[in-house]
Structures are given as C-alpha cells and as structure tokens.
Write a protein that binds this DNA or RNA. Structure first.
Lengths: 141, 141
DNA sequence: ATCCTAATTGATAATGATTATCAACCGATG
DNA sequence: CATCGGTTGATAATCATTATCAATTAGGAT
C-alpha cells in the first residue's frame, strides 16, 4: 500500500519526507473516516512540530496517489479514508454511524444507466441515509 | 408548489416577506442547479437592495420547507435545486454537464441493503461520474 | 386602520475549512 | 558533498457560510 505512494512520488519527482511518512503511517493505521483536522490532532501527538498545512497538503497528495479517497461525508469538512476496495455508505442520520456495503447488482445497473445516457463511467458515490438499529425510531431529534 | 412554502411559514409563525417571495419565484423559475451565490446574482438584477445573507437564510428555509433540496454538487459551495420528483445525477467529469435519472430497480435494491443492515431508510444520494458523449475520450484533461 | 410584538432584514463582523505565500530547510540525484 | 528544486511551518488570505445587531416590518389582535 505504501508502495503505491512511493511510486507516485518517484514518478513525479516528489520527495519522501519524514512528515509525509508519518502522516501516511498514521492515516493507514486508522480504520475509519477522518477529517484533515482530526488527523492533524493525531499527528500532533506523535510529532508536535508538524504544521496543519502539511497535513492538508499531504492528504491531497495521498488522494492523488490513490492511497486515500475523500468521501463527501463529515458535514462541512472533507473526510478521508484509505482507498481499499470500492464501497458505498449507509449513514445513520441520528447518531452518525457509518456502515459500508457494496452491491454488484446496483453497480451493474449503474453501468446500464450510464450507457443509456452516453456516459463512460469512471466512478460513483452512493450514500443511503436513515436510522440505524440502535437509534430510537419514534421520538424526534 | 409555493403553497407548500406558505403552509410551512404559517405552521411556524414565520412571515412572508417580499424578499422571500422574490427569492422563491426566481428559484422556482430556474430549471437547473444553483449555488446560493449564483442565485444571489440573479436576485440582485431584480432587486439590488436584497442582501446575500437573506439569500442564504432563505435557501435554508426553502430546504426546511421541502421546496428545495441541496445537492452536494458544485464543488465547495452548496447547490440547490427545486424539490421535484426524486432523482439522481450523472455528472461529466470534464465539462461538468449534469444529467438526471431515476432507477426503480436500484432503489428497490437500496431498500434491501438498508434492511439487511437494520437501517430504516429515509433518503439517499447517488452520483455517477464519467465522460459524457460530447467530451473527447482519448486526450487527458 | 392602528398597535404590538416577534420575526426579518441588510450590513458587517466572525467563523471554519482550506489554500496561497514565502523564507528557511532538506531529500535526492549526480 | 554540492546543487537544485521540492517541502516545511507559520501566517496571511480566501471562500462559503453563519452570527450579530440595530432598524424595519409582517401579521394577529384590538
């Protein structure tokens, strides 16, 4: 996984700095979605000298390298997650819980739709919103 | 359609001001996605005395009333569109063209997935990205 | 029609997330 | 190990959006 990042750096004559290595490691060590800000806080614990501009820049770089992908989740701020196998999200509108899923049949259907409209599909995003099974159904907010 | 908005106002003891009426009319007159900023520019042409804070506030209100819905499109800024029948989007990654579609079979599948995960679905967002049929396929960027 | 009160407005300041700037620094290549 | 171009951290700038607040006004009651 880190190999992908190193290759990307070399291809573009970019440099592997200790900051980037740390950010990459911490990010890949997580198993959840993080915002740049959350990640910055985690990074700070390991090396307080790293600035948050560097974290923002590095996350952009990780996305370009294909190591991370930015999911439009997380309200106003961009959230990132390691770019594993493609998947979509189920999001609880009350507690914010996120479940991942993947549906081959939906993806086949998406492909059909794209073709019908003359599009050559390259990616998609799908998010389902609702109440999860631990959140009460009756009361409001 | 405007009826929905008027009802919403009354229910909450909110007031129908000339500003809100104008914003509602201009917004519903459009057949495309608009950002609050674009809408503000259009509103300005009809009544330059309206401030953009009012446009932001009104769009929020229109969403609450169910007259408008905010689509996560439009890069950094929130985009709005009249809340017609539900639909999803096909977006050209090169020229930005947006096509709307709706798939009953995908929605049935989404419902199945939600149930399997113990979720009670209330909404979803789906965006397909690719190249449209007028954009060249070969060259890059 | 007139009052009253709470909602609304416009201008502006404030916020939050992200990006640009820039001098000092440093990784990679030869 | 010198050079050069990429990188860093601090900070200012930007962009979209929200909060503040005095002045205004819609809408129900009188």
């Amino acid at each position: 996984m880190q190999h992908v990042f190193l290759t990307h750096l070399k291809e573009r004559r970019l440099k592997l700095t200790p900051q980037r290595r740390l950010i990459l490691d911490v990010f890949l060590g997580l198993r959840r979605h993080v915002s740049a800000e959350e990640l910055y806080a985690l990074i700070q614990k390991k090396d307080p000298s790293i600035g948050q501009a560097t974290v923002f820049r590095s996350m952009k770089l990780l996305v370009e390298a294909g190591v991370a992908q930015s999911s439009g989740l997380g309200g106003r701020s961009i959230c990132y997650e390691p770019n594993r196998k493609h998947h979509d999200h189920l999001i609880c509108t009350r507690c914010g819980a996120i479940r991942e899923f993947r549906s081959e049949s939906i993806e086949r259907e998406q492909e059909k739709i794209a073709i019908a409209h003359g599009f050559a599909l390259s990616a998609h995003r799908m998010e389902l919103f609702g109440l999860c099974n631990v959140c009460p159904k009756g009361s409001r907010s």
